[in-house]
Write a protein that binds this DNA or RNA. Structure first.
Length: 725
DNA sequence: CGTTTTGCATTTTTT
DNA sequence: ATGCAAAACG
């Protein structure tokens, strides 16, 4: 009773699925059944080509996507357990390092540092080396080091390439940073790709082991692979070249993170004899939505042309809604949600609100809360990044990896036990001098062996660590162990005995962590604390999202990749916000194209209804900002759109001019110049006013000049003239 | 020496 | 508005 592959797939999908193992590239347009092809192909390989599931490695973008694929394959193959290796790039990297850490000098049970932990290390190094400079903040250094790792450059290479003092400084910081990470027995996210490549580069025997272990490779979202990930793939593919890559150049949205769209475009060259299949039939969206999205993306030059089609029917037009401010934007959306839900019997979980930046979620959240509509926010302050969760995880990490001084610092005085900065710094200095970790230092201090450190303050801390290690060695089950950590550390007590009302929420979060551990335990019988920590470090927010809960989902456009919803709202379609353009800088065409792809990704999430909303007024950073509608709205074919103006309320008093222009509201005169006004500057030439903020002497205008692009000017000094004078 | 308070910068997107 | 650094306070 094998699955009838031919019946369940369209001809193109079928062709891809049954293609014999070898280089295969599938250009899968949005909603064309990409995951379907991947899962059926894996199933088919097992079913018809007799391939051992353990020899298949499939790399996906999120753990959730991996989980879904596993579930669907189970249905196709009817097996209870499928030993296919289904992972994200980063978790695969972590697996490799767990087996090969020794060859690069690392120890067992290393930690994986996220952004903020890496930044703490960098900050310390920059301070220690007296290298503070405005253009090399910890954040900037982190970014540049990340890019260097993407290009597989070590500190020596960065130094050799450096042509400026800034880059020479960076090379030094980079060197110290890696030394420190090695001491801490910790990797950052970029290392999880970088070091496996290094290992494969320098140890052919190890590489061969992995090659023969995974002769069959499948890679999802290939358009978002970075250079280092590409190197990893090249290594693994080796001579066998049974490699399937699936992707869509129009959905490449991680260029800022090192993703290189060229990787998918040159796949055919890299693997001669590649079979290329294009999936252009869309099963998700109505014709109107698809035409709107296709019309938009056609404005990108740097892409492979394709013709998506659907036979779902035209559906309603895409609705563009103008709102006066963020609050009315929220109300407009809520109003539509309520109507659709009643009219079409939809559930809350059928709706998603997408936006460019996490900050936008606030006003929407407020509106939903007052309306009593259940919602879930994905992203923003991630669950595992909350302070209280990180604190508990830091305890766990120290127990697993005693060299992890970053975590030791975190917990040594959390909850407060009277150990201050001075003591910690003395401890650190002593540990550095004697080449030991801080935890060992604590134990020495507790015995009074470090002059200048009072034993009385340190002993309670070392007692806690001792107790917890003993419990752990007794083979305590994971969830009850975590529970004991919360108790014995004094964390639970410190939260339940305070006046701060926030602490109650923190306590709840911590209890939720225990629930999370229990779930993890249940899903992965026999898993260790190390396994749990690895999973937690690499979990994304989308992974934690439960699509079955009856609540509206709010998330960024980036997080929405790979998902679909009957009704989609994209909020904040204002020039400067979507496309997001950082003030000061001119407009980079490549970046603009990526913003357009991001918008495209958002639009193609919609099955039945798509709403695009924008606000004339919004509080950005801290100051009030007026904006013009996104240029993307003008790029979408008009016959697919319907325009609406909200009726909730208006910020501006000069309502009368509202309906004058193409989108209405062309003539709001908030400051000295109306939004959209053409102006002349005697140095920069002609331009158009995009937004104004502040007032009086502090009034600023952002003007997009024809010749030199975007500039922010102070009205007081700029001497701007209306263009027709 | 440690903790609390005030002042200051700060927001793109994420594995 | 919020979160993290120096300064004041205990």
């Amino acid at each position: 009773m094998k699955t009838d592959y031919k019946k369940e797939l369209n001809p193109k999908q079928y062709e891809a699925v049954i293609n014999p193992p070898g280089p295969l590239l599938v250009f899968a347009g949005a909603g064309s059944g990409k995951t379907r092809v991947l899962t059926y192909r894996i199933a088919y390989m097992i079913d018809y080509f007799g391939i051992d599931p353990r020899e298949i490695l499939a790399v996906t973008f999120t753990n959730k996507a991996a989980g879904e694929m596993r579930e669907r394959m189970r249905q196709i193959l009817g097996m209870a357990y499928l030993p296919v290796m289904l992972l994200t790039f980063h978790s695969f990297g972590a697996r490799i390092l767990r087996e090969t850490y020794g060859v690069i000098g690392y120890r067992k049970n290393f930690s994986i540092y996220d952004e903020s932990e890496s930044l703490m290390v960098l900050k310390r190094i920059i301070a220690e080396e007296n290298m503070e400079r405005g253009d090399l903040t910890p954040k900037a250094a982190k970014y540049l080091i990340g890019r260097a790792k993407d290009d597989m450059l070590d500190p020596d290479a960065v130094e050799a390439k450096a042509t400026s003092p800034r880059m020479r400084d960076l090379a030094l910081i980079y060197r110290k940073y890696q030394q420190r990470l090695l001491e801490l027995n910790a990797f950052d996210f970029d290392d999880l790709i970088y070091f496996p490549v290094i290992v494969f580069d320098s140890h052919p025997n190890i590489l061969n082991r992995y090659r023969s272990r995974f002769p069959h490779l499948l890679i999802d979202e290939y358009q978002d692979t970075s250079n280092s990930q590409y190197r990893l793939v090249q290594h693994l593919a080796g001579e066998h070249k049974s490699i399937t890559a699936v992707g869509d150049d129009d959905q490449s949205i991680y260029g800022w993170r090192g993703a290189n769209i060229k990787n998918i475009l040159k796949f055919e060259k890299d693997f001669p004899g590649t079979k290329v299949i294009k999936l252009e039939r869309n099963y998700r969206s109505t014709q109107n939505i698809l035409s709107a999205a296709s019309g938009l993306i056609a404005n990108n030059d740097n892409r492979k042309k394709k013709a998506l089609w659907t036979d779902i029917g035209s559906g309603g037009k895409v609705k563009v809604m103008e709102c006066s401010d963020e609050q009315s934007e929220a109300l407009t959306i809520i109003d539509r949600i309520v109507q659709h839900r009643k009219g079409e019997g939809l559930r809350f979980s059928d709706f998603v609100i997408l936006y460019r930046t996490n900050a936008q979620s606030r006003a929407l959240e407020e509106g939903l809360r007052t309306s009593g509509i259940p919602y879930v926010i994905i992203g923003g302050v991630r669950f595992y990044e909350r302070k209280e969760i990180r604190d508990i995880l830091a305890y766990l990490r120290v127990l697993v990896n005693p060299d992890d001084d970053v975590s030791t610092r975190r917990i040594i005085n959390t909850p407060k036990r009277g150990i201050g900065d001075t003591t910690v710094e003395r401890l650190f200095a002593f540990a550095q001098k004697n080449r030991i970790n801080m935890l060992t230092g604590c134990f020495l201090a507790a015995e009074g062996k470090i002059p200048g450190i009072a034993t009385s303050k340190i002993i309670p801390f070392t007692e806690i660590i001792k107790k917890l290690s003993a419990i752990r060695e007794n083979g305590e089950p994971l969830s009850s162990f975590v529970d004991k950590v919360i108790d014995i550390s004094g964390y639970r007590a410190s939260l339940s005995s305070t006046s701060d009302p926030e602490d109650e929420a923190r306590l709840e979060n911590i209890e939720e962590l225990v629930v999370g551990v229990t779930t993890f335990e249940y899903r992965n019988p026999g898993a260790t604390l190390e396994d749990f920590l690895e999973e937690v470090s690499l979990l994304t927010d989308v992974d934690r999202w439960d699509p079955n809960a009856d609540a509206i989902t709010l998330m960024t456009l980036h997080s929405a990749k790979g998902l679909e919803f009957p009704v989609v709202f994209i909020a904040g379609l204002e020039d400067g916000l979507l496309p997001l353009i950082r003030s000061g800088e001119g407009e980079d065409l490549g970046q603009l194209e990526e913003e357009r792809r991001l918008m495209y990704v958002g639009m193609t999430r919609a099955k039945k209804h798509l709403y695009l909303t924008y606000s004339r007024y919004r509080k950005r950073y801290n100051s009030p900002t007026f904006s013009i509608p996104s240029r993307f709205l003008k790029e979408i074919p008009k016959d697919t759109l319907d325009f609406y103006t909200d009726t909730t309320k208006y910020y501006s008093e000069s309502d009368k001019a509202r309906r004058s222009g193409k989108y209405g509201l062309e003539d709001i005169r908030q400051g000295s110049f109306p939004i959209g006004a053409e102006v002349y500057h005697n140095r920069f030439g002609y331009g158009i006013v995009l937004s104004t903020e502040g007032s009086g002497d502090n009034e600023m205008v952002t003007v997009s000049f024809n010749r030199i692009g975007r500039k922010k000017l102070m009205i007081k000094f700029a001497n701007l003239l209306p263009a027709d004078k």
